[in-house]
Design a protein around this nucleic acid. Structure first.
Length: 691
DNA sequence: ACTACGCCCCTTTTT
DNA sequence: GGGGCGTAGT
């Protein structure tokens, strides 16, 4: 039974009476085992599994815990446990209530916000350069996650340098929300906001809500936990591992637990079973430079001989990666037990290259890159139009593959189809309302009045030779004067695809239809030709053929993914919600520090520990947060820890000093004194480190 | 006015 | 390697 293997501290927490329970669990102290045991305890005591809600930071973590429970309970029990991230659980529960949202990638919503922003004039107010759409979106997201009500007031407080724009930004964001609604889009935050809204009128009656990585909970998520209003709470976290400040993580939530819940009970797990004494000493030496929120006495649970952590310094970046690859090649450990951890994703490519040169495979997150590739994006956009017929981006991105149709024409085509389809481009293509007024707006730009409504529209008979569907020939979109034959054919292919998949909900069918469509063949042709175009402008046909094969192979990977999500709406949301967690490859684990949280490996390399890279000294982050990142990174190691950096990057032509954390760990000489922001650091000679 | 193409910029971390 | 911007061409 899962409870029998626990130590005294873990057992006390796992068997705590129902109530508001907080477990402070330092790195490697058996946090996951305790949560698993807690759930087992609840089920054994008669709590129905469907009344247990487990909120984790990644879906993978949730799956793993449910999998572990699978050793003790049959699948029909574990299957009923509601487990996942705040977002995926909200997605699931909203669907149960019949309030399904259709998610759109943040990158697309940033583009939408940018377009709203660009229509405003800021120069009348100030010479100050306004924030970019992407940055404002991130700020707005932070605002949503902070649970504040008045954007302008909140913004003025937190972004003083642009406080004079607070009112315009607030107005822009209001318009952005209108546009989002008009196009049928929802984002990550909407999922949580709508969930909380739904909870005001609908109770799910959970017996206990368990929250993993509680230190990374932000205010919106915190309010959601309260909105569930469960009989019992079981929150597990560690302040020293709070690394999501950029996402609004509010340490006050874990810090004020006992103040907010008057019958709160606090447990602590202090014995580390994961790492050797020397690794823990190093981790603690560094993290002690952060102000303590609560006293911590981490006890070493492992005894015996151990290798001390090593620092490797190299002259050049690639020498570092190559040496690590060599060390790994010689290591007897299974590759899955080895991890290379870095602060920025930009380190990953070089490392992967070095590993490959020595024939070592690696596993890294491939989901985002996969989804961002043009060939997959094109398919996702096609599905987007089906599941959300208002999807302007899906339509625009698709149309841009038609030669002769650019951004302006694509927009016009969308507007016409939307008008004759009563806001649905699918209707606009398949059953246009011929009586609808699609010649709406006068051209704002034509000051001379040169273009009247009539001159913009031509008879569709000009496409007579194309052999288009007779029904489609009546479609007003064909009257649009800037549409050429190629464009008309392309639009008719979009129509053919929609005709085939309309009303279909089986994701495999929809994706396969898209892949096999004439339309996609057209898109693939454009992509393959581009990829096979040589410097002199000629197209290498053999290479184009190869490119096509690669594209279709990749598309097949997407088709395979439908197996796990048979409903097309679920599948579509999964692409936004879960694809980032997908992994590709086999072998050595390549991870960002953020992605490494909660994992452990026999041998860990933390690379690029150079001042500026790690800590990453950009605007939003604090040294304390970077220090916690370092703490998380080194505490992933069970037996052996190797730290490294290179003094020079020949590609970027930058020289590096050792990371201040190496200095704090006593492994390197400081380049120029202590680090700003560290409390109680040794020696404070002068300024910080250059570059 | 719009589209297409070539050149230069930058590149945190996640759901 | 991709997005933004300036320029040439329709």
């Amino acid at each position: 039974m899962p409870l029998s293997k626990l130590n005294k501290e873990q057992l006390a927490a796992a068997t705590a009476p129902k109530g508001k329970n907080l477990v402070i669990a330092s790195a490697g102290t058996g946090k996951t085992s305790t949560i698993v045991a807690r759930i087992a305890h609840l089920i054994q005591r008669g709590t129905p599994p469907e009344r247990i809600l487990l909120l984790t930071f990644t879906n993978k973590a949730a799956q793993e815990m449910v999998l572990r429970l699978g050793k003790f309970f049959p699948p029909q029990v574990t299957r009923k446990i509601c487990a996942g991230t705040f977002h995926s659980v909200s997605n699931l529960l909203l669907k149960r209530l019949g309030r399904t949202l259709i998610l759109k990638q943040p990158s697309e919503l940033k583009t939408l916000l940018k377009s709203v922003l660009e229509r405003r004039s800021f120069s009348r107010i100030s010479d100050l350069k306004p924030y970019s759409g992407a940055y404002l979106y991130d700020i707005y997201s932070l605002f949503c996650n902070a649970c504040e009500k008045d954007f302008a007031a909140w913004f003025s407080r937190n972004y003083e340098e642009q406080a004079e724009f607070a009112e315009i930004y607030a107005d822009v964001l209001g318009e952005f929300e209108e546009q989002k609604a008009a196009f049928g889009y929802a984002d990550f935050n909407d999922l949580l906001l709508k969930m909380r809204e739904a909870l005001a009128t609908h109770k799910f009656d959970f017996a206990e809500v368990l929250v993993d990585e509680y230190q990374d909970t932000n205010s919106l998520q915190g309010s959601l936990i309260d909105a569930f209003d469960a009989e019992s709470l079981f929150c597990v976290g560690d302040f020293d591992q709070s690394i999501y400040a950029f996402n609004g993580a509010n340490i006050g939530i874990i810090g004020s637990f006992s103040l907010r819940y008057k019958d709160a009970k606090i447990f602590a797990l202090n014995t580390n079973y994961r790492s050797t004494a020397k690794i823990l000493e190093l981790a603690n030496r560094v993290i002690e430079n952060n102000e303590r929120l609560y006293p911590k006495r981490l006890e070493v649970g492992r005894a015996g001989e151990c290798k001390p952590p090593r620092l490797l310094v190299f002259d050049e970046l690639f020498a570092q990666y190559d040496n690590i690859a060599q060390t790994i090649a010689q290591s007897p450990l299974p590759k899955e037990e080895v991890a290379i951890i870095f602060r920025n994703n930009s380190s990953a490519d070089g490392i992967e290259m070095a590993l490959r040169e020595r024939g070592i495979g690696c596993k890294r997150r491939g989901g985002v890159e996969f989804l961002e590739s043009r060939e997959i994006k094109a398919l996702v956009d096609l599905v987007g139009i089906l599941v959300n017929p208002k999807d302007i981006f899906g339509m625009l991105h698709t149309l841009e593959y038609a030669r002769g149709v650019g951004a302006a024409a694509a927009r016009e085509i969308y507007e016409i189809l939307s008008a004759v389809g009563h806001k649905s481009v699918v209707c606009g293509l398949l059953e246009p309302d011929l009586t609808a007024n699609y010649k709406q707006k006068e051209r704002v730009n034509s000051q001379m009045g040169l273009f009247s409504d009539f001159s913009e529209f031509l008879p569709s008979s000009r496409f007579g030779a194309l052999g288009l569907d007779a029904e489609f020939m009546k479609n007003p979109v064909l009257n649009y004067s800037n549409l050429n034959a190629n464009g008309a054919l392309f639009v008719s292919q979009i129509r053919d695809f929609l005709l085939q998949v309309r009303g279909q909900v089986v994701s495999e069918f929809v994706i396969k239809s898209a892949i096999n469509s004439k339309l996609y063949a057209n898109i693939v042709d454009v992509l393959a030709t581009k990829r096979a175009t040589l410097k002199n402008g000629n197209v290498d046909l053999a290479r184009a053929d190869e490119a096509k094969k690669k594209i279709y192979a990749k598309a097949e990977v997407l088709a395979q993914m439908t197996k796990r999500h048979p409903n097309i709406y679920n599948f579509y949301n999964f692409l936004t919600l879960g694809v980032g967690e997908l992994e590709g490859g086999n072998g050595v684990n390549l991870l960002t520090v953020h992605a490494s949280k909660g994992l452990e490996f026999g041998l860990v390399f933390v690379v690029d520990l150079a001042q500026g890279r790690f800590p990453n000294l950009k605007m939003m982050s604090s040294v304390e947060e970077e220090r916690r990142l370092f703490y998380v990174a080194v505490t992933r190691a069970k037996d052996e820890l190797v730290l490294s950096y290179a003094k020079y990057d020949k590609i970027r032509k930058v020289e590096y000093m050792p990371s201040c954390f190496l200095v704090e760990a006593g492994m390197a000489e400081g380049g120029g004194g202590s680090v700003a922001g560290s409390s109680g650091g040794s020696g404070s000679s002068g300024s910080g480190v250059e570059n």
